[in-house]
Deep mutational scan, measured.
Amino acid sequence: KKIKIDLKKGPEGLGFTVVTRDSSIHGPGPIFVKNILPKGAAIKDGRLQSGDRILEVNGRDVTGRTQEELVAMLRSTKQGETASLVIAR
């Protein structure tokens, strides 16, 4: 099931960490939400869960991207702006 979640970045950030699983010589594996932090946009919104697979960030497919690339995409969202995620659960 795909779910679109918009998180408005506040002073505590987006409020979640990510982890890559099953990376191989063929490229990075899928990226999942690792933890929801006690402060930040994710816990206020309440929909994002540990174990959700991140498919898109701000309309860009993240398949084949590294964890570092995904984190850079999320960090490029400025405070007060919205990060738009599509996740699979």
Results as ranks from 00 to 15, higher is better:
H26K: 10
A42T: 02
S24R: 05
L48G: 00
R65Y: 10
E56A: 08
G10D: 13
T82I: 09
K34Y: 03
K78C: 10
G59R: 06
R47Y: 03
L37V: 09
K39E: 14
V86G: 10
V19K: 12
V19P: 02
E69H: 04
G27R: 08
R89W: 00
L70F: 10
T77F: 13
Q67F: 03
R75H: 08
A88S: 14
K1N: 15
I54R: 00
D52F: 00
I25K: 09
I31F: 15
S76D: 14
G10S: 14
R47G: 10
V57H: 03
G59M: 06
L74A: 03
T66S: 09
K9L: 15
G64H: 06
G13Q: 06
S76T: 12
G46V: 01
V18H: 05
R65M: 11
D61N: 11
V62T: 08
T63H: 05
G13P: 14
S24N: 05
N58S: 06
I54C: 02
A88D: 12
G29N: 09
P28N: 13
L14H: 04
D6F: 10
R21Y: 05
K34S: 14
K2S: 04
T82E: 10
F32Y: 09
K2P: 02
K4H: 09
I31L: 14
L55R: 04
D6Q: 13
G80R: 05
S24K: 15
V71P: 03
K39L: 11
V62A: 07
T66W: 03
I5Y: 01
S24V: 07
G46Y: 02
G27Y: 07
R21L: 14
L14G: 00
K78A: 08
Q67Y: 14
G15Q: 00
I3S: 03
S50E: 12
F32T: 11
K34T: 13
I5G: 00
I87N: 05
E69F: 08
G80S: 11
R75M: 15
I31G: 07
V86Y: 09
I5L: 07
Q49D: 05
S84W: 09
A41P: 15
S50N: 13
N35G: 12
G15L: 00
V86D: 10
D52V: 00
I43V: 10
T63K: 07
K78L: 09
G46E: 06
K2E: 07
Q67K: 06
A88C: 11
A83D: 11
V86M: 07
G51M: 13
R65L: 04
G10L: 13
A41E: 14
L55F: 11
V19M: 15
R65D: 05
I87F: 04
K34W: 05
I25R: 11
R65C: 11
L55M: 12
Q79T: 06
G80D: 09
Q49I: 10
